[in-house]
Structure formats: C-alpha cells, structure tokens
Design a protein around this nucleic acid. Structure first.
Lengths: 355, 355
DNA sequence: ATGAAAGCGCTAACAA
DNA sequence: TTGTTAGCGCTTTCAT
C-alpha cells in the first residue's frame, strides 16, 4: 500500500531547497522568496504529504495544560459522577504531557463561578472545559476566552453568542420527548395526570430544562392529546415545604406519573411518595446517582435517562487535547445518545467501562 | 504541580548508570547486572516515571499491522454496521503507523472462514480481531494464534479453551432478560403467549443465542410465572416455508409478543405479520439495521437492543493497538452496556458519533 | 532569505 | 555487562 512515508526531507530534496525552507512554506512562517515558495508548493501538490504527528509534537517540546471549570463534585452527586471522566482522561493523556487542572465553583453561588474563572485564567491554560451553570457569567468568561484565542468546550446548553471549539451534550427537547414516552409506557393503563417536576432548578437559568419541558409536553400533545399534563415547580427556597407542596399538587391533580429532569430530584420525590403511601406513581428520572440506582432496582423509579456526565468531560478533554497536540478538528457539537436505563440493564451500565 | 517531566536520562543520572541500562531494565531486555538493576529499580520506585509515548513510538520506527477477520459486510447488514468502527479506528491510529487489514469471509460458508484465516496468516499480522462465527474453525484458528504468540481479540461468545488478549461483547443472558422485560412492558395488557423466535441461527452454533433464551425465560419465570413462554425455531433450510411456519405458530399459541435475537429476523417477521394483519403483536429485536430503524419508527417494532457492532471492532482494535504500541494491558473481557432503543431515542443514536 | 544543525525523549545498534 | 551514539521526523535557533 503506502510504500513509504514522505518526509519533509524528501520534499526538500525534490524541490531543491532545505528542510528549513519547506517548513517555512508549510507553516507560512514568512521569509521565503517567491521562487522557493513556488518550487516547494509544486512538489507539495504533486505528492501526498501528511506530517508525522508524533515527530511534530515531540519536536515542539511543549507541555499543554487544560483547565476544567465545573461545580465542586463534593457538593453535587451529578458532578461527582463526571469526575471519573477526568480520571480516565488523566490516565489517557498523561503520557503526552497534558496537564489537567480542575477548578471548582459552588453550585449555588454565581460569584464563586466568576472568581474561580479568574483564578483559572491566572494560570493561562491552553484550553478550557466548562459547565456554563451560570449562563451570564459563563458567557462573559467564554467571550474572554474567545478574545484570548483559547479553545474551550462547554456542556449543557448551546450558546449562540460564543464560539467554543465544540459543544457537548444531548438534545434536550428530544430528551423531554423520550421522558414522556417512557412515562407513558409506565403509566398508560392507569388513570390520572402526568406532570413534569421542576425542583430547585431556578439557579440554573436553564434553557435545557425548558427544552425538556417543551419536549415532554409536545410528546403528549401529539401522541396522546387526551392525556392532561401539568408542571409542578418547587423553587430552591421552598425546600422546607417541599413535601407539603408536592403532596398537595399530587392530590389536587390525581397524578399517576412524574417526570423529574433534575437528577437529584427523584430521590427527594420518591421518599415523599413512599412516606405518604403513594408508591403507585410512576417516575422517570435522570442519571446514575447511587440513590437513583437503588430506586430503580427496587422499582420506585421506572426509567432513568442517562446523560453520561463522565463521558461528557472525557470527550471534552479528548477534543481539546487532540486539537492542541495533533491539530485535529473537533465537531462543533457532539450530541450524546439518549440512553434508557431500566432495572434490567442498569447493571450492564455499571459494569461497563466509560463508553 | 509537576515542575518537570522525568526522562530516562534523569533516571540514568540518579542511578549512576547509562540510558542504555535504564532502558534495558525497564524493558527486561536482559544483559544487566544485579547491581545495576537494583540501582535503577530503586530510583524507579522513588520517582513517578511515565515514558513519553510520542518519543517512544517515534524512536522505534515500526509499522504494526492488525488484521480483521469478519464476515463480508456486503453480505450482511449487521457486519456492515461494524465497518464504521474500522474507519474510526483507522483515523485514530493513522498517526502511529498502524496498518489495518480487513479480511472477509462468507457468512454461510465455514470453508471460506478457514481459507480467509489462512490468507490472513500469510501476511503475518502483529495482531488479529475476529468474529468466531464458525466456532470450531475459529477455535482452530485461535489456537494457531496462541501458538504464534499473536495477540487477538474476539467477539460474541466467550470461549474457555483459548486465550485472547480480550473478549468483547455483551452479557447475553442479561440481554435476554432485558428483552423479556421490554416485551413484557409492551405487551402486558394484552392476553396471549410470548415467544422467542430463532430464525436461521443454526449456522452459528451459538452459545449466545441460547443464553439469550435462558435469560428470556428466566425473566418471565421469576417475574411473571403465569405468563407462558414459547420458543419457535425456524431453521435456515426452512426459509421457503417461513411464513407458513411462523403464522401457524402464532395462531396455535395466540401470540401477543415476539423476541427476535437475530438482528435481521425482525424485518422478515414484521413483513409476514403485516401481510397477515397481525400487527397487534409486539416485537423486540436487535440492532440498528436500516430495516429495523424504519420498523421502529413506524411502530411495528417496539424496542431494539443495541449491540453496537461498530464500537466492538473499534474497541477491539483499540486494545490491540495499545497493547502493541504502548504495552498497555487490556481487560480480559469488556462487556458493553445493553442499550435500549425506542422510537424516541433512535435519532439520537443515529446522529451520535461512535460511542 | 536560506541552510545547517541542535535538540525533543526514546530505541537499537555498536563498541568497549 | 555496560556506555555511547546515531537515528526517528519535525521544530527552532543560529549563522550566513
């Protein structure tokens, strides 16, 4: 097949110039006469040259660092899951002298995001992975990165005003539709209403939660228009009266099924339901938190939708590292599949390696 | 953090020996005195040394080749899917001068497997990925590879008498259970029997089909003992009477749901059902063949279980390449998660990159 | 503007 | 058994 790899040296010989000149032409590093440039470009057009990436990155002996700006995993089980992605990435990229610096902020505190972002920039990382939990603050931060020319990848929400190397996440609208279809499957032979439950989401200004609701409603609207759909909203500052609010909403609407987009919401809800003897109510929740896993196995939750946070950070780092090291182009968005978890396939997910 | 990466040269200086000796110790290339070895190993224990992979592969300027022995994708839609895994792997490993040579055999022809295997061995590949469709022939082949010391990875069925570097697949028993649980979900409010449908599987001598059946039966036995479960077997040589056999089995047993482990079986079945006005029957099938995708979207199939063949070959190559190039140890088996596909998440799978 | 040459960290061949 | 050294293909610096 490929008889032999073409090297810069070969091109130099063919063009009758030195390797230095070839390098300058290839990378537009200036300082080349028209004559020399033409000779080299002629050769380049005739042959099929792909540079040896190993030699390339070895030659320019640089240690890259990728910074991560994510919520403190010790404060949030969802982000705790994502840390295995960091570990796996660390493992994968260590031999290439890629340095990963995690930088945490507090989930309920926009100021801490900003200050963490500032700390991060002090270290002038070569690239950044970030979760734009606080949208406005995040946009400011991303714009700064855009100015600096620092490549970054972000999760959750697509933001049209900034230019990340790549966006990683799921189609939230479709996720809502999927949630609705699963809830329907679990509850269709019961009477009653279904609802989407927004718990303590306010902090997230989150477009993606709204999109999930839209998808949820659309599914029922299109497929089962007779089914009436509610939304129950329990804000972060109302958590002391959570039980009361939830129960009253359920009783008032004769609920048969709940769709809970917040990953930690299912546990809160299931506890209240169990305490109040309402365990006939179907639940569709999100993500493989330990609590959710237990509830799924014991039958309190019917389905989970997996957002694979660990893979999100793993892939984010993957794209950036490939970009820095090998100049590979990343997809502008990488949408993950919407994975359906049931009591019968949960173990296969827990045993599987990061995928 | 780590101020500076440690190089072999540094270790040599610390141990008071030459780089050559350090290299020999690290790779057990013999020819080292006890004294020298001890000195080096002491240093290695004290510091945290990870070799620079770029330099490593650049230095040992070798081109490895991995051969693939799989069914001709033009003859089989399932294996056609797996080819995107090949392409992705090719892309990923190109910078490391890893050569991938596919080698196809005919799906219904054991002889062609053997002859393809021989052709393959002529090229003395450094490693092999293979699908052991013809179990006996495959075992012979694997034993030969074992003798040659050529590492290999295989799919589908775990084989206790051979020693692959790694086995890649899914837990077939659990896959059967999952299939049963999904079929139950889709059909539980109808009356009638459920069945597992074995279509033209004989060629595969396949342990994993039996395991799926066992899982399928166990689920119903344990969870819904009242539900009666059948098995319908239609051999490869009976395909001319397929319709007749299938319909008579359905009528006789008053079937309400079918579990079809063969990926191409769902289409055959659905066509017959539609033709005979039996479209109330629920179907759980396997894999994202185009036909299956259409049937799922149009509601003729209720669920698909995704075996992710493309990722199977991708990961197989991944483990072998890492083994050859970087001496990384592969897991002796890598079980994939059992992915549930419905009409509402199918698109997210089709749009997603290999995952 | 150009070429020559010194690395980058590791491997492997060659002396000693 | 050891140490030395010449590559691997590319980048970068330094003369010219």
């Amino acid at each position: 097949m490929n008889k032999k790899m073409i090297r810069i040296k070969d091109i130099a010989k063919l063009a009758g110039v030195s390797v230095g000149t070839v390098d300058r032409v290839i990378h537009n590093r200036g300082k080349v006469s028209e004559k020399a440039r033409e000779k080299v470009e002629k050769v380049l057009q005739e042959i099929d040259y792909t540079p040896n990436l190993l030699a390339k990155t070895l030659g320019s002996n640089k240690v890259y660092t990728i910074a991560l700006l994510v919520p403190d995993p010790s404060q949030d089980p969802y982000w705790k899951l994502s840390m295995t992605g960091l570990d796996t990435a660390q493992e994968e990229w260590r031999p290439y002298h890629m340095e990963l610096q995690p930088c945490f902020f507090e989930l309920e505190n926009a100021k801490s995001f900003t200050s963490a972002a500032q700390r991060l920039l002090k270290n002038v990382p070569d690239a950044v992975v970030s979760a734009p939990i606080f949208l406005n603050e995040a946009i400011d931060f991303f714009k700064k990165l855009d100015q600096l020319g620092t490549p970054y990848v972000h999760f959750n929400t697509m933001i049209s005003t900034v230019s990340p190397l790549s966006f990683i996440g799921q189609d939230s609208y479709q996720s809502g539709r999927l949630g609705a279809s699963l809830l329907h499957l679990a509850s269709k032979h019961q009477k009653g209403k279904v609802a989407i439950l927004h718990i303590r989401e306010s902090v997230q200004h989150s477009v993606h939660f709204r999109e999930k609701e839209r998808g949820f409603r659309d599914f029922y609207g299109a497929m089962h228009p007779a089914q009436s759909v509610e939304a129950v909203i329990i804000e972060g500052n109302q958590m002391d009266t959570f039980e009361e609010k939830l129960i009253s909403a359920i009783k008032k609407n004769d609920m048969k099924g709940l769709f809970i987009p917040t990953s930690s919401g299912a546990k809160l809800t299931a506890d209240v339901l169990e305490k109040n003897g309402l365990d006939h109510i179907s639940i569709v929740g999100y993500d493989l938190l330990n609590e959710n896993i237990n509830l799924l196995k014991s039958g309190y939750i019917d389905f989970l939708i997996h957002q694979n946070p660990s893979r999100q950070v793993f892939r984010g780092i993957h794209h950036l590292a490939n970009h820095l090291l090998f100049k590979k182009t990343a997809p502008e968005k990488e949408l993950f599949p919407l994975e359906v978890i049931t009591a019968e396939n949960i173990d296969s997910y827990l045993e599987a390696v990061l995928h």
